[in-house]
Design a binder for these strands. Structure first.
Lengths: 133, 133
DNA sequence: ATAAAATAGGACTAATTTAGTCGGATATAA
DNA sequence: TTATATCCGACTAAATTAGTCCTATTTTAT
């Protein structure tokens, strides 16, 4: 329920690993997947998503790979999570424009839960990659 | 991923509703399930769990039902969540004594994530039922 | 040129978790 | 003794998450 997905776990491990590399060096999905025993195809897709969001740089072709694009102390946990899993909401309705929770009296908790939501967001926006290294 | 389960949503709605009742009065699972269109059997089990953890009082038999046992400003969100879903951990390993993440170098993120974990715990321990009413 | 090694990405399957249902036991008030 | 509750285990269905397969494209080195 309040658990990170494997994808996010793998993504964090990978980003952390990439961040420890010398500047200018790249790492391949294969290398990382072998070192941490992460399924190669799965890790590949995660890295592709991180690349799409410009968190890491990707270099195609032979001798290609990935390197970090954002400074560890500027890379928020929320950026990584959102790149991999999209925006996160505590309830369905918070993610849904045509939610009628507020019109009807069926859902009395949506609005109050926004407090919890914003607290969690704050944590994930405040903590950076530096803090988990 | 970081979403509340339906059970917890239903539980929060129900506890909030029960809390609004006059002291001494009880509400039945049936009444609550009808008002909020929550599946009756599902809600029943949720209320049973809350009763087991002494969050609400249960009265069996005809004219039975439930009433609140803990004052709203003393009832933490974490209590409700834990009663319904058990203890929550951001990763598998945090819930697991014989996790070897720390012995091997396979999981480099478990320890750092404890920070995130304790921040989330803090929120859920701090917020009470009063805050969502 | 061509082969090798890498990323890119869609479609699919398997596994796990979450949501919901069913059936029966027990308790209590009228 | 009947009606109306809670209690609770076992089961099924639905949804989400995890993992796999296959093919295309890009780039470097020979």
């Amino acid at each position: 329920m309040l658990k990170l997905s494997k994808k996010v776990e793998y993504g964090l491990i990978a980003v952390k690993h990439i961040a420890l590399e010398k500047p200018g060096e790249t790492l391949t999905a294969k290398e990382i997947s072998q070192k941490y025993e992460i399924p190669y195809e799965l890790l590949s897709k995660i890295l592709q998503k991180l690349a799409k969001e410009k968190i890491i740089a990707s270099y195609q072709g032979s001798r290609g790979g990935y390197s970090l694009l954002v400074k560890p102390n500027e890379l928020k946990l929320s950026n990584i999570i959102e790149a991999i899993e999209g925006p996160q909401y505590l309830t369905e309705c918070m993610d849904n424009e045509n939610c009628d929770c507020n019109k009807t009296d069926c859902c009395t908790i949506k609005n109050p839960l926004e407090k919890v939501q914003s607290n969690i967001n704050e944590i994930l926006n405040k903590l950076t990659l530096s803090e988990i290294m």
